[in-house]
Design a protein around this nucleic acid. Structure first.
Lengths: 227, 227
DNA sequence: GCATATTTTGACTTGTTTTAACCAAAAATA
DNA sequence: TATTTTTGGTTAAAACAAGTCAAAATATGC
């Protein structure tokens, strides 16, 4: 399930624009006035709120304050140029960031990303997986089989990483697509077969390399280094 | 043990805000007037001071000068918009950075991070990187390839330094922008390509120079001197 | 304030990867 | 053994990422 971002702006064009840029990664909910924000937050439980200051029914500053009283959701304020941003930041309100209209969608996306990164403290994952005669290095994006380097494309690498991180566990094609390709992939599950095939060819082209990726007939694939 | 950051501002809301954003990583001490700063520094031994200019009892500029006379602690000044920032930085005062109020907490956190990164490794980290037939000298801001000097622009140099300091590690364009360009660059990631291209051209124009900067398709770039 | 150097951007080209469709082979089922 | 189902291999086209160049924007030094 994707996380939700709530956008509050009375200008529907702006809402659409923001939505377009974020909906690859998030579910984007939209509200057009300040009166129904709190209600919507309860319903959709967003991880971030993008909030215009000039709003019908209830001012964005008030809304911001209200949200802050109830929950600890990161808030990015939208302000027109020249609006008094003094009050927005720091002080009583404590929005996490602000964007001045008009803004470039790219900047908006970058700021969202930055705020989210701060909000979700970095979980440091293991960067290297090791098996006998087999090393997968996330940092260097590199795979070594019996001391020989194997060049992998991004998809191949991700696929291998996911399976190797859970050795022995069987992944269905659907699961692999969900985890490697992402939510918004509507292609054939046969795409997985293709990737697996090329991954196998590359890995097993090294002399003496064992079979790493096993077909579990009727289910999917699994990674296992057999003695 | 966490390191300590000292915040000096008479506005308690701002102090609270800064504290919120930094206390994950640091112990945050707070002082509300300019008179007791020196005393507090002796007590808590902070690694960084965030200092408002407008302070009761004693002016922030004076305090800054005093701190500088005694210790080599990085200082970030807080200024209201329109205050004369010329004097703050460089010469007489020598603050390391400044933030204009009102500021977004995000920007503040990023600047703290940047100042800390710059300040800390100064003592221990190596100022010169050496590879076979290849020397990068941070102090002289100079690069030698096979004995020949290569002139690099600031961005080119920083880019090269970052990657060469972590040979083999792959950097995404986003990561490079974050580390080399800084937090307030929201341009195209294509800018990285441009820099890399010119960097490559300069480095590889030397006869016999190997390829240093490698493209990792779909991910980014890495520095590696291959045998 | 002007001239110069540097950086960024956009359009275009080139090259690689990914996808989707097809068919053959293998495994399970009847 | 014949049939159905599932998997694997191949390939061309589409999608995408990276390289290149030059002009515009920006910063820098005089």
């Amino acid at each position: 399930m994707k996380e939700t971002i709530l956008v509050v702006d009375d200008d529907r064009n702006i809402c659409e624009l923001i939505k377009m840029y974020l909906e690859d990664e998030y579910t984007v909910e939209v509200v057009h006035d300040g009166g129904s924000v709190i209600e919507k937050i309860k319903q959709t439980n967003p991880v971030l709120v993008i909030l215009d200051i000039m709003l019908p029914v209830k001012n964005g500053l008030e809304v911001c304050k209200e949200i802050r009283q109830q929950r600890d959701i990161p808030i990015i304020m939208l302000t027109a140029k020249g609006e008094e941003i003094d009050k927005i930041l720091g002080l009583e309100l404590g929005a996490d960031d602000y964007i001045t209209k008009p803004f470039s969608p790219r900047e908006m996306a970058a700021r969202v990303k930055a705020v989210m990164r701060r909000a979700r403290p970095a979980e440091k994952k293991e960067q290297v997986l090791r098996f006998p005669g087999f090393v997968i290095d996330m940092e260097c994006h590199q795979v070594m089989v019996n001391g020989e380097q194997v060049e992998l494309t991004p998809k191949e690498f991700e696929l291998l990483w996911l399976m190797a991180a859970n050795p022995g566990k069987v992944f269905t094609r659907e699961k692999l697509i969900e985890d490697v390709w992402g939510y918004n992939f509507y292609g054939d599950t046969r795409a997985v077969d293709s990737q697996v095939k090329r991954l196998r060819r590359k890995l097993e082209s090294i002399p003496g390399a064992p079979v790493y990726i096993h077909t579990v007939w009727g289910i999917g694939y699994k990674f296992e280094v057999l003695g």
